[in-house]
C-alpha cells in the first residue's frame, strides 16, 4: 500500500483556517451571555430588595465578623448585598443528562475516530518503509 501524500496548503487557505478557529472561539465565548443576561437581572432585583434595612444582627454576623467588615469599609447595607446573594444549586435533571451525554459523547467520538486514524499512522510507519 502506498503512503498517503498530503496536498500543500496555499497562503489563502492558511489564513482562512486560522480565522475560522478564532471565530469559533469568540462565538463560544459570547453564546452563554445570551442565557446569563436574563438570569442576572432577576438575581440583582431580589438581592437589592433584601438589602433595605439590614443590620449586622439581621445578617447574622458576630462581633468579630462585624469588626472585620467595618475594617474592610463595609456598612450593613453594603455588606447585605454580598451576604444575601447566594448561588442556586438546584439541579435540572434534563440539563444534567444532556450535559453528561455531550461530554461523554464527545470523548467517545474522539477516541473512536482517533483510533481509526492512529491505525493508519502505525500502518504507514511500520509496514511500508
Amino acid at each position: 500500500m502506498k503512503n498517503y501524500t498530503p496536498p500543500n496548503q496555499g497562503m489563502f487557505g492558511q489564513i482562512f483556517d486560522t480565522i475560522l478557529v478564532l471565530v469559533l472561539v469568540y462565538v463560544s465565548l459570547m453564546v452563554p451571555l445570551l442565557f446569563k443576561a436574563a438570569a442576572k437581572a432577576e438575581d440583582a432585583a431580589t438581592v437589592a430588595a433584601a438589602a433595605v434595612k439590614a443590620s449586622w444582627e439581621s445578617l447574622g454576623q458576630n462581633a468579630v465578623q462585624q469588626a472585620q467588615w467595618v475594617k474592610l469599609g463595609y456598612d450593613p447595607e453594603k455588606a447585605a448585598t454580598l451576604i444575601n446573594s447566594r448561588f442556586d444549586y438546584t439541579i435540572d435533571p434534563i440539563m444534567l443528562l444532556i450535559t453528561i451525554a455531550v461530554v461523554g459523547g464527545y470523548f467517545w467520538f474522539m477516541l473512536k475516530v482517533s483510533d481509526q486514524e492512529y491505525r493508519e499512522v502505525i500502518r504507514e510507519k511500520f509496514d511500508n518503509k
Binding site: 453564546v31 448561588f87 444549586y89 450535559t99
Partner: peptide
C-alpha cells in the same frame, strides 16, 4: 452547577 451554559458552549466549540 454554576456554569452549565458555558460548559455546553465550550463543548460545542
Amino acid at each position: 452547577l454554576g456554569y452549565g451554559a458555558s460548559l455546553l458552549s465550550i463543548m460545542a466549540f
